[in-house]
Design a protein around this nucleic acid. Structure first.
Lengths: 117, 117
DNA sequence: CCTTTTACTTGCAAAACGCAAGCTTACTGC
DNA sequence: GCAGTAAGCTTGCGTTTTGCAAGTAAAAGG
């Protein structure tokens, strides 16, 4: 997978979209916000992200400092992905998107039980 | 250009992204929020959207009721695209994205002079 | 051992994108 | 009234990104 990521303009909207503006990234962020942390957990989300796409997006997020990967050591035997402070600050964006969808797209259900923090 | 648009899940985040979750749509929305309304005006934005992509996105937005196209009549001799109330309600999402970019991506400049309403 | 589970990688076809050209319908100027 | 220009697209085509299935490697469990 490629990782070009050169900015199209200095506009903050454009730059943010270069980072998270694709079909999958915000869904991974959503899952992380909900407390999911393992590769398989993201895979099991109802949208059905392909494993190659997921691996690519997680790597991108780690590279840009939105997510950190805690390799298996100490207690947990499994890799764990977690949002950094920078990643958590996307909460406002995620909430705005979720709120808009609930208000404007029929048939959407708020199954998100986001944990605070 | 294709227009599949089948929802991946009933999640409001997922459904919203199916609608506006690509590299270009929110930039068109941004331009509309700023008062741009003509095809060429969107073309002239610094990100340099291709005309076929722009035509596709505008058509999608019209189909989904976020934008309305006022064909040339009366005074104006040129086509005009304008946000509907539904489209304008994306303001919160756009603002959240812009705000996050300004706070978290270095070198971004707020050149947006959004008009209220 | 043998099987599962997790976390990926690889190959390949299909879809989306990006670029340059071309095309059509006004107007504009002379 | 005919050439030139601008707006708003469409078309072709090569490149990039996706999506799907399969395969691989390491660790854990029985």
């Amino acid at each position: 997978m490629t990782r070009p990521s050169k900015r199209r303009s200095p506009c903050p909207v454009s730059c943010t979209l270069d980072l998270i503006g694709d079909k999958w990234t915000m869904l991974v962020i959503r899952d992380l916000m909900c407390g999911k942390s393992q590769f398989v957990e993201f895979c099991r989300s109802p949208e059905g992200i392909a494993t190659n796409i997921l691996a690519d997006r997680l790597q991108r997020l780690v590279e840009h400092g939105l997510v950190e990967k805690a390799a298996s050591d100490e207690e947990s035997r499994r890799d764990r992905y977690r949002l950094t402070a920078k990643g958590k600050s996307l909460r406002a964006v995620l909430d705005a998107i979720a709120h808009w969808g609930l208000a404007n797209i029929e048939g959407t259900e708020a199954r998100l039980k986001p944990k605070e923090g």
